[in-house]
């Protein structure tokens, strides 16, 4: 079996397992899994920028929220149909990432982190400021009638799961293809040594901008899907916390691995879910997980696994 076949086989197997989970899981966990899959798409996008290209952004909530509002606002105000609204969400996510990238990518490292943070904060405040249009702090509910896609009512369990799975599967396969493509190789080269890559004939700015836009499209798609599947659009999704969450998932699962974001989202979601049964101190769990990860396992679960036993893992 060639390496390529092994890699594709593993990822398809994971997809089959996730797909099959719907037949055994009770309704509560099925909803959770749908949520996790959408969040994992967001985290995959974050991973493309951070894990593969080395762009540590603190502003991805902006692109995530862009997906929510670019999907929700046209439905609310203009009566758009779900499909164009979802596509609008994905595109606005990418566009915004491109715009932010044009400015923020002039900086690097710590400055890049602060600039992206500031842009996301400005975005969040803008949502509050335009509260007559956006519903401000309270947000708004996506009309039940606008959540029917191709005859499937996305507010019910099975279609919702299927829709989330379709997005998740697409996102994962595209991500796998991307990181194994020549472009993916150049993105990694940028992360590893920007100056060397420049002297191999690559424009660092352009490569990083492309990575950030792809990342923004993922975040926008995840945001639009989340709003559509769970029927609510609100400014909380633009808060800094939603920039931190995908980072946490990626760090936990393993930065620069295709499956890491999903694994991280899955574990973190249930870690919070379970601990919140005992204590309401879930912020503490998030904080402790962050500190623990950077201290003891900066490569995350799959990153460590790749180092020890499976160097072929993409």
């Amino acid at each position: 079996m060639t390496q390529g076949a092994k890699i594709w086989g593993l990822h398809l197997l994971i997809l089959v397992v996730v797909f099959a989970a719907q037949f055994v899981l009770p309704s509560y966990h099925m909803t959770n899994l749908a949520r996790i899959m959408v969040l994992a798409v967001f985290a995959m996008g974050y991973n493309i920028a951070f894990g593969y290209t080395g762009l540590l952004s603190l502003g991805h909530a902006l692109f995530f929220a862009a997906g929510f509002y670019a999907m929700g606002l046209p439905i609310w105000h203009l009566g758009w149909l779900p499909l164009p609204a979802l596509i609008a969400g994905l595109m606005v996510g990418g566009l915004l990432a491109g715009a932010v990238g044009l400015l923020a990518l002039r900086t690097a490292g710590v400055s890049f982190m602060i600039v992206t943070l500031m842009f996301a904060q400005a975005g969040y405040l803008t949502l509050l400021y335009l509260n007559t249009w956006t519903g401000g702090d309270e947000g708004f509910v996506v009309a039940r009638t606008a959540r029917v896609l191709g005859g499937l009512d996305l507010a019910t369990d099975t279609p919702r799961f299927m829709a989330a799975f379709a997005l998740f599967a697409c996102a994962m396969l595209v991500c796998l293809w991307l990181v194994r493509s020549p472009l993916g190789r150049v993105m990694v080269a940028m992360r590893e040594n920007e100056e060397r890559s420049r002297m191999l004939g690559y424009d660092p700015f352009r490569i990083k901008l492309i990575a950030l836009i792809v990342s923004g499209v993922y975040a926008g798609a995840a945001g639009a899907a989340y709003g559509m599947l769970f029927g609510y659009v609100g400014a909380t999704f633009a808060t800094i916390q939603y920039s931190i969450l995908p980072m946490l998932y990626v760090l936990l699962g393993g930065a620069g691995t295709v499956l890491g974001p999903f694994l991280g989202a899955l574990l973190m979601f249930y870690l919070i879910d379970i601990t919140s049964g005992y204590t309401d101190a879930y912020l503490f769990v998030v904080g402790a997980a962050l500190v623990g990860l950077v201290l003891f396992a900066p490569k995350g679960i799959l990153g460590t696994l790749r180092e020890r036993i499976a160097p072929w893992l993409p």
């Binding site: 990694v188 590893e192 040594n193 060397r196 420049r198 002297m199 191999l200 004939g201 690559y202 424009d203």
Partner: peptide, 23 residues
């Protein structure tokens, strides 16, 4: 800019070995 010169045919190998060690 440097990256375009490389494409135009001027290649440079570094004095300090500068391969990508993790690739």
């Amino acid at each position: 800019p440097a990256h375009l010169r490389v494409r135009a045919g001027v290649a440079y190998t570094f004095q300090i070995t500068s391969v990508y060690p993790r690739l």
